[in-house]
Simulated assay, not measured.
Amino acid sequence: MPMRKMQACSFSLVSHPITNNEFSNKQQRNNLKSSLENSKLYAIAQARYPRIDFKMQENGIEITISNDEFKSVGYIDIFYLFKVNYPEYIDAILSRDVLLNFKTYSDPNCYFVIGIKEKDTGNMIREGMIEISAWQLLFYKSRGERYISGFDNYKDFLKLFIHYVGKTSKSTYERLSKGHHARLNILSSEEPINRQNLLSEELLILAFEVDAVNIIQNPKEYDLGETKLNDVIDLVERSLISSLMPKYNEVKYKSHGEKFKESDEFDSCCLTLNDNIQLFTDEAKLCGKYDASGLSNSDYIILDESGISLNNI
């Protein structure tokens, strides 16, 4: 039967992978609030813990990220940090009417203390501290942020073992910071990935936004219809669970493909991951690919008259 109506869905991260420490810290959680409000799905993942080390260079900071298996070296543009945080002083900085003050340390994240001093007296005019984690650096690199260079093998760090997938609600992230049942079960029975050292790994929260577009072969004959976001979220969640089979999802939606075949709303649905990360379980893996347009050429999950299948490309 020729295709009449197809739905193309994608999901992508709304922020960097979030650590347990960030969720347990109220201030850090509040800093993420605006990003998390846009998320419709979340996953509890596990990955090797990335450590940060750095040294000063003439035109930037050389940062080394390592996790006992991989190592990557990159750089941050110091001037960019001043430009973003103190835009009102950029002209004075360029004309050397003020002096820059810059310090770094790591424990375990990377901290930049940036300040501006009066040229004549040396008195501090402004000073502030910027905290950035290895996960943030890797995420910003994956999105092509221009002030970060290097980290050519960043994808090696973004292979994330998926324990649980779920839909978000107003209380989801509050529960994740306290008594979320799946998170507590994972914490109590956490095992190392690939039989490696558990102490070198950590749990992460992945927060995703979801998008979809309907594609009609003959708009005059078939109604485009309204894209119902809740239906799209349900479809993406069930497709991910039934394809990846995360251990801590009690309901696996094994009949999801069969139920889609019975629906007459769409002939097919294609789901892609619009991020340069890999999600994997003991059962399967889904490799994403980021594209600013949202049209990702990643591995994909297809639902059609044959049922459901995950296709690695």
Rank of each mutant, 00 (worst) to 15 (best):
M1V: 10
M3Q: 09
S10Y: 07
S12V: 11
L13G: 12
H16T: 14
H16R: 11
P17T: 11
I18E: 02
T19I: 14
R29L: 11
N31A: 05
L32V: 14
L32P: 07
Y42I: 13
Y42W: 02
R48P: 02
R48N: 07
P50K: 02
R51Q: 15
R51H: 15
K55W: 13
M56L: 11
Q57H: 12
E58I: 13
I61Q: 02
E62R: 01
S66P: 04
E69M: 04
K71D: 12
N85C: 00
L94A: 15
S95A: 14
N101Q: 15
K103T: 10
S106T: 13
P108F: 09
V113H: 08
I114Y: 07
I116E: 05
I116W: 01
D120Q: 12
G122D: 15
R126L: 08
R126D: 09
E127K: 05
G128E: 08
I130T: 07
I132V: 15
A134V: 11
Q136P: 06
L138Y: 00
Y140D: 13
Y140R: 13
E145V: 15
Y154T: 05
Y154L: 06
F157W: 01
G166W: 03
S169Q: 12
K170F: 12
K170P: 10
T172I: 03
T172G: 02
E174D: 07
S177W: 03
K178A: 06
G179Y: 00
G179S: 06
H180P: 09
H181A: 13
H181N: 13
S188H: 07
S188L: 06
E190W: 06
L198A: 12
L199W: 05
L203E: 03
I205E: 06
A207Y: 00
V210P: 02
D211W: 01
N214S: 10
I215N: 02
K220G: 02
E221M: 11
D223W: 03
T227G: 09
N230H: 15
V232P: 04
S239G: 04
S243C: 03
S243H: 00
S243E: 00
V251L: 09
Y253E: 07
G257Y: 01
G257N: 04
K259Q: 05
E262F: 06
S268C: 08
C269I: 10
T272P: 05
D275P: 08
N276C: 08
L279I: 11
A284Y: 01
A284T: 03
K285P: 02
G288I: 03
K289S: 11
Y290H: 04
S293G: 09
S293K: 01
G294V: 10
D299V: 04
Y300C: 15
L303W: 00
D304Q: 03
I308N: 00
S309N: 04
N312H: 02
